[in-house]
């Protein structure tokens, strides 16, 4: 099998919040069209790591990052790197569904408009395409003008994924996207993630071991700011190399 293309290449990454070191010497490669799961106990740094991939940590005062971080071969923490272009290519879906308090349509038109799409027909197309991608089109096509706040949790999260797709990203970061959802909504999102992985590269933080096992190709196990083990998901779950990994995935702590 041919060597897969690397989307992110992270080498010796250290991240500090003030004087606290949240990530230590993190090394990982993320491959195109893979679903990469980040697992580990609370506070291990996996969300922090995820949020540094589209520079959302820039919002946190006192956050400092060192190391070599490449996205498509470019240093995305470099001085001249365009953060906005990065965030356009690396979209994000959050833990709590967070549609804007606007209509469903406006939620989907917001991103494209930022990037200069003004033509109503094009925006209509984007809305239909993205909603179809997440399997919401038939459910809500008759109430695109209604507030997005009236959607159920699962629908709202799928709308957020559609919103993320509306700016045609390469990578989708997902920060525990199903932790606020019921099991049925969760299984829909999981199926969606697998579907999306054909076109997009997905990195997902999850607390749910079964979820990581079900949907991911590769898994990285974070523990107190370090990646203790990373690799093929099936291998990691069936035959972990690190005893800590085994303890965690079998539920002995976490």
């Amino acid at each position: 099998m041919a060597e897969k293309e690397k989307v992110f290449e992270i080498r010796d990454m250290d991240l500090y919040y003030g004087s606290f070191q949240a990530l230590k010497k993190v090394n990982i490669d993320i491959y195109r069209h893979d679903v990469t799961a980040l697992i580990g106990p609370s506070g291990c740094g996996k969300s922090t790591f995820l949020r540094s991939l589209n520079r959302m940590n820039d919002l946190v005062e006192g956050c400092r990052i060192e190391g070599k971080l490449l996205f498509d071969g470019e240093d995305f923490y470099g001085k001249d790197y365009d953060t906005i272009a990065l965030r356009t290519k690396v979209g994000m879906v959050f833990q709590k569904p967070n549609p804007f308090p606007k209509s469903i349509y406006e939620n989907l038109a917001y991103g494209p408009r930022l990037h200069g799409v003004k033509d109503r027909k094009k925006l209509d197309e984007i809305a239909e395409r993205t909603l179809s991608q997440v399997g919401l089109w038939d459910e809500i096509k008759d109430r695109l003008g209604k507030s997005a706040l009236g959607l159920s949790g699962g629908q709202a999260q799928r709308l957020c994924i559609a919103r993320c797709l509306s700016v045609e990203p390469e990578v989708i970061l997902m920060d525990e996207p199903t932790s606020a959802l019921d099991p049925i909504a969760t299984s829909k999102i999981e199926a969606l993630i697998q579907e999306l992985s054909k076109q997009y590269t997905i990195i997902i933080v999850t607390h749910n071991m079964q979820q990581a096992g079900r949907i991911s190709d590769r898994t990285a196990f974070f523990f107190s700011g370090e990646i203790l083990e990373a690799g093929d998901t099936r291998r990691l779950f069936t035959n972990p190399e690190n005893p800590k990994t085994e303890e965690y995935i079998t539920g002995r702590f976490g």
């Binding site: 959302m56 919002l59 906005i84 356009t88 959050f94 549609p99 991103g111 957020c160």
Partner: peptide, 18 residues
Amino acid sequence: VPLEFREASLALGADRRE
């Protein structure tokens, strides 16, 4: 206004003014 809206907007490639 919840932080989530701000994050959602920035994550779509909006700048601060937008």
